[in-house]
């Protein structure tokens, strides 16, 4: 029971991370396409300015909870995915410094260089997270001793790549919806165009991804055995349709939130499909790490649950407060007036 509660919390942490940092990653991946001059580029940076760092902590928390609740899964996941995780790490490092360093020197060359870094440092994590999760859904070649028998190229199989492209699209649309909220004038027009362009692509890729999931993974087995769980993909479907409807009717905050619901639904759909597995072995079903054989002791899980039940709502409260505090649009005037802006 405790193990299953932690599985759900683990999944929730990933979903919150994708919803929150997803729009930062999307904004960065859209930067060269929507921003046409220095002011617009600065608006894009400042649209996520106060938020990205706090959002990224959800990734640290998801990683930390994997370590604490399912140490065996953490150990195998991180060592098996050695190369992609280190590339993800380097990208996150470059993303952080690109925010911080870019504005510190007044030189077009310097800033152009950091814009280029920023673009790749957002695109690459989006892609890698998609590749990693798709491979986890499908199962990775690990033996009973937790030794990985695959290669980096092995991860870039058709299903893995489809997952990567899907994540990039989802985060880009999420970022476009966010930019639509935070920008005005030309930039807002381009953000709307981007959102309208990305939505049908995302919709088509969702269908493709679901079909590939049917073909390459066993995720659906759990759903066929427990039809009530189909509520999760339905949640995702409601989210993506509502996103379009709300976008068309100009309810922008709701459209972004609906897209968040879509991300939540997709994450829950995929991760739940692995249950009780966390690291599914494609070599040997006996080598699969489940929430039961990979979990920490009940003592640790109980203490951690107490900490999580107290702290996570508090974190959500103050992060919500800070989102409210910085909810206004970012404009040429507002960044000119604020010498603390990026």
């Amino acid at each position: 029971m405790l193990e299953t509660i932690w599985f759900v919390l683990w999944m929730l942490l990933w979903a919150v991370y994708f919803i929150l940092d997803g729009f930062d990653l999307g904004l960065g991946s859209l930067l060269p396409f929507v921003a046409k001059n220095e002011t617009e580029r600065r608006i894009v940076y400042n649209a996520s300015g106060p938020f990205w760092d706090g959002n990224e902590v959800w990734l640290i928390a998801a990683g930390g909870v994997t370590f604490a609740a399912f140490p065996k899964a953490y150990a195998v996941m991180f060592s098996a995915l050695y190369a992609p995780l280190l590339v993800l790490l380097f990208a996150l490092i470059f993303r952080a410094v690109s925010y911080e360093f870019r504005g510190k020197v007044e030189s077009a060359l310097w800033r152009g260089m950091w814009d280029c870094v920023h673009y790749f440092a957002n695109l690459v994590p989006a892609l890698l997270l998609g590749v990693a999760f798709a491979n986890l859904f499908m199962g990775i070649p690990v033996d009973a001793k937790g030794v990985y028998h695959g290669s980096l190229l092995g991860l870039l199989n058709p299903y893995g790549l489809a997952g990567g492209v899907f994540f990039v699209l989802v985060f880009c649309l999420h970022g476009a919806l966010w930019l639509l909220l935070k920008s005005r004038d030309d930039l807002q027009v381009r953000a709307l165009a981007a959102a309208n362009f990305l939505w049908p692509l995302e919709f088509i890729l969702l269908l493709v991804f679901l079909w590939l999931t049917w073909r390459f993974t066993h995720l659906f087995a759990l759903y066929l055995a427990n039809p009530a769980l189909f509520v999760l993909p339905v949640l995702a479907a409601v989210g993506i349709i509502a996103t379009k409807v709300l976008l068309t009717t100009g309810r922008l905050w709701s459209a972004w939130a609906a897209h968040g619901l879509f991300i939540l639904g997709v994450t829950f759909f995929g991760v739940t499909g692995m249950y009780p597995g966390i690291i599914i072995s494609s070599l040997d079903p006996a080598a699969t790490i489940t929430v039961f054989n990979g979990a920490s002791t009940p003592a640790t899980l109980t203490i951690m649950l107490g900490v999580a039940l107290v702290m996570v709502p508090i974190v959500l409260c103050y992060q919500f407060w800070m989102y409210r505090l910085f909810s206004g649009p970012v404009t040429a005037d507002s960044i000119a007036a604020d010498h603390h802006a990026y």
């Binding site: 609740a69 900490v307 992060q319």
Partner: peptide, 20 residues
């Protein structure tokens, strides 16, 4: 692992959010 996870939830969120 639990010590690191507690660090993130108790302290790191607070630090990053309020620094911004």
């Amino acid at each position: 692992g639990s010590l690191l996870a507690i660090e993130a939830t108790v302290a790191f969120f607070l630090e990053s959010t309020f620094l911004a």
